[in-house]
Design a protein around this nucleic acid. Structure first.
Length: 790
DNA sequence: GCGACAACTCTACCA
DNA sequence: ACTGGTAGAGTTGTCGCG
């Protein structure tokens, strides 16, 4: 029979020596099924030493005789970095056999290298069969008998190769979110000591459930949780911090209580998987924290902050503030608040999932990475899996991941801005500069011309300054990949113009074009990443060199036309907006340089200090954009950010630095009288390495040590919040204290005035020649128009 | 022993 | 586990003073 299916998760199993691919799917008629392919075997390629293909083949033939796990060997023609090679494909019985034989084969006399032995079995299957997660396929199947270990509606054996069909719809998915609370009087909960006291669940069919230590003992609670999951049978499970914290905790508690939580569709417990992700077979377990990591405007990724950013209201008011939530559990009155907090967390996580899943589904489908892994996978791996798929289609060998030293190279061009307040400024930028440069100059690992290779100059492009050469034809791997990505995206963007912005189809396609954009834009960075399989430093180096040349030529053109260039960074130019000259400039750039440039926005007013990468602008609709300044940096206290933003607003909108000074003085007085909430004085910094590796006693590091002594375990990537207090030491590090133990009377108000608020305000006000002294001593300065650039 | 200063460390941003 | 370019705060080491 024929079946239409949508792969939700993929795994494999080995029993009695036979390996089987499991495609956990949803069918067109809404059944949750397992498709089993028993016909697929892992393989890898053997590259012979120069012109030794026949010797290698013979060596492998005799090797095969003593190694029964090898099913077949055959010669194959492939390409390696664009050059034709003959390799031997070695097919083995099951995934574990790959490792058993590959090292021995590598030591055979005529073997040069082994390829593709590190491609995970289920990825291999999807690549070879052109099966994509989150996409409809049809296949011929035979129904198998269902055993009670498999929690699906039916099991089928795959009888032919699946084919993708033209249907972009997404099936109705059952989504379950969950939150867990612990009882831990001594800092960070430890699974060896601290029990789970609350588990809350919410589903997208509006079912809510809570299990607490009031009604169950912990073991029963885990069983009830487990039972609920099996009964509700979610396709997708979402949590917050679930990959790194919650699932490992639950698993550890279960182990300690000598029980297990068989919640997958094959009744197995959650398993540690790739990219620091936890896998639950047959379902997609997705951590909304991974999604939050991409919301770079949210500086401290608490559920509260993420919900606020995404406009999720309602339940947010019930969220409690850590640390020491355990105290709520100790007090019978407060206990209900903790219960409410937990169920609200589950509801909010579900709301985040509603926004994240359409994107995750598209990203999974574009990259081919399974849905449960795709948000956990770093940008480099998302690009890489996309490239691997394309390489397979083009018969290119997938290069091995090799250890190589980090070699830095020159990057983009950044101009020194013209300091001051400017009016009517156009921001003009090259669209997707790096991808388009790579396409235009055919920059790719397989088009790179080695320095010793002689080639007629009309056959290659040569990068300025660095001199790397790239063949003009045929189109390189990156060019083909990027053109495909850009074409696809353009088609989608054309479709979007005719669709209602609120329709499900719009949301689907919009998320899809975003996914394509992410991959295209990350390709340049990928080429320069020393961990990349397709790393050729010369490609990255040439791309930035062409980039510098491109922007330099654009600046020169702009000046020739008589445009006043205020600032520029990488692919953008800020010029005084004179419509005719700008139009002329844009068309000349297109004809002379051959790359697309367009007006991104117009600032009614904008301001620059002497620093690069920092400016603020007022848009025609009244919005104020702040770029680079303290106001958008997460490592300044909220008060300093707030003050700076207000100062910028007064300068841009009211054009009144004087009003800004008056405002600043008022804030200083309010702070002196302790009338600013303490939380606005907290400074948050990220731990970028483990505490003991720091060479310098930076304030946040010293505070991290204090926290550790109090029982809080801090990991790389955690944020440390501290307040500077009064004290004898000159060193700030000695006076920085965890924010939640500080009393207002101990706060070093002078530090906040002289090292937070005044500097951040002065950053802007110094444009008008205000100094710390002039602000603090009430001396008024000259009027604005003296400093205002017309 | 102390301040001035340079060198260095560290974070977070922009494109 | 995408890149380099940049600003800015804070710590630490060194120099010179006499």
């Amino acid at each position: 029979m024929e079946l239409l299916f949508w792969p939700l998760d993929i795994s494999y199993d080995v029993s009695e020596g036979a390996s089987r691919i499991f495609i956990w799917s949803i069918t067109k008629d809404g059944h949750r099924v397992l498709l089993i392919d028993e016909s697929f075997h892992p393989y890898f390629y053997v590259l012979p030493k120069a012109s030794a293909i026949d010797s290698v083949f013979k060596e492998l033939e005799s090797f095969k005789k003593t190694n029964p796990s090898i099913l077949s060997i055959q010669k194959e023609s492939k390409f390696y970095f664009g050059k034709p090679v003959t390799v031997v494909k070695v097919t083995v019985n099951s995934p574990s056999d790959v490792n058993k034989v590959k090292d021995k084969i590598k030591r055979l006399p005529n073997v040069s290298d082994i390829f593709e032995a590190d491609i995970r079995f289920y990825m291999r299957y999807m690549i070879d069969k052109n099966v994509y997660p989150c996409s409809w396929h049809k296949v011929t199947v035979t129904k198998l008998s269902l055993n009670d270990k498999l929690k699906v509606d039916a099991v089928y054996r795959i009888e032919n190769n699946p084919t993708m069909i033209d249907d972009t719809s997404i099936p109705n998915l059952r989504v379950l979110s969950f939150d867990v609370e612990y009882y831990s009087p001594k800092g960070t909960p430890k699974p060896t000591e601290n029990p789970i006291v609350i588990i809350s669940l919410a589903t997208n069919s509006s079912e809510y459930k809570q299990f607490t230590a009031d009604e169950y003992d912990e073991k029963e609670m885990l069983h009830a949780f487990s039972k609920y999951i099996l009964e509700y049978d979610p396709d997708i499970i979402v949590g917050y911090n679930s990959n790194k914290l919650v699932w490992p905790y639950i698993v550890s508690r279960a182990k300690k209580l000598e029980t297990s939580i068989p919640i997958s569709r094959e009744l197995s417990p959650p398993q540690t998987s790739v990219y620091g992700h936890i896998s639950i077979a047959g379902r997609a377990n997705i951590d909304m924290f991974d999604y939050a990591e991409e919301l770079y405007e949210v500086k401290i990724k608490t559920l509260q902050n993420v919900a606020e950013y995404l406009g999720i209201d309602g339940d947010r008011k019930y969220l409690l503030k850590p640390p020491w939530l355990y105290q709520y559990w100790e007090n019978s009155e407060k206990k209900n608040m903790l219960k409410k907090h937990s169920v609200s967390s589950a509801k909010i996580i579900l709301e985040i999932a509603k926004r994240a899943l359409p994107f995750a589904i598209q990203l999974s489908n574009v990259t081919g990475i399974p849905l449960d892994q795709v948000l956990a996978a770093a940008v480099g791996f998302r690009v890489e899996w996309y490239l691997i798929r394309q390489a397979f289609l083009e018969n290119e060998l997938i290069p091995n991941r090799v250890d190589r030293p980090y070699t830095p190279y020159r990057g983009a061009l950044v101009l020194k801005p013209i300091k001051g307040l400017h009016e009517n400024i156009a921001v003009i930028d090259f669209s997707s500069m790096y991808p388009n440069i790579m396409i235009k100059y055919n920059i790719s690992p397989d088009t790179y011309v080695e320095p010793d290779e002689s080639l007629s100059p009309d056959e290659y492009f040569i990068a300025p300054e660095v001199g790397h050469r790239f063949r003009k034809s045929p189109p390189g791997f990156y060019k083909r990949v990027l053109e495909r990505l850009i074409d696809l995206r353009n088609k989608i963007r054309t479709q979007l113009k005719n669709i209602d912005v609120n329709s499900p189809e719009y949301i689907l396609l919009d998320n899809r074009q975003k996914a394509l954009k992410i991959i295209a834009n990350a390709c340049y960075g990928y080429t320069g990443w020393f961990g990349a399989r397709w790393y050729i430093r010369q490609c990255a180096e040439a791309t930035t060199a062409f980039g510098r040349k491109t922007i330099s030529e654009a600046i020169k053109l702009a000046k020739e036309i008589g445009l006043n260039v205020i600032y520029g960074d990488t692919d953008s130019l800020f010029v005084k907006y004179e419509p005719e000259k700008v139009d002329n400039f844009i068309s000349q750039v297109k004809s002379n340089i051959g790359l697309d440039i367009k007006i991104d926005k117009i600032y009614v007013t904008c301001l620059f200090t002497e620093a690069a990468k920092r400016y603020a602008g007022l848009l025609p609709d009244g919005r104020v954009e702040v770029v680079g300044f303290e106001a958008v940096r997460g490592d300044w206290c909220e008060l300093a950010q707030e003050v700076q933003f207000k100062v910028i607003e007064l300068v841009l909108k009211e054009k009144s630095p004087q009003a800004a000074v008056t405002y600043l003085r008022k804030v200083i007085n309010t702070l002196k009288s302790h009338n600013i909430p303490l939380e606005k004085l907290v400074i948050w910094k990220t731990l970028s390495k483990s505490i003991d590796e720091y060479e310098v006693d930076a304030p946040h590091v010293v505070v991290a040590r204090i926290l550790r002594a109090k029982g809080f375990s801090l990991e790389i990537g955690d944020k440390v919040g501290y307040i500077i207090t009064k004290g004898a030491s000159k060193r700030l590090a000695d006076r920085a204290k965890p924010y939640f133990i500080v009393n207002y009377d101990d706060v070093d108000i002078n530090y906040y005035i002289s090292s937070q608020i005044v500097p951040s305000a002065l950053r802007v006000l110094s444009i008008f020649d205000y100094t710390e002294k002039s602000i603090m001593t009430q001396i008024s300065t000259r009027t604005l128009d003296l400093w205002f650039r017309k």
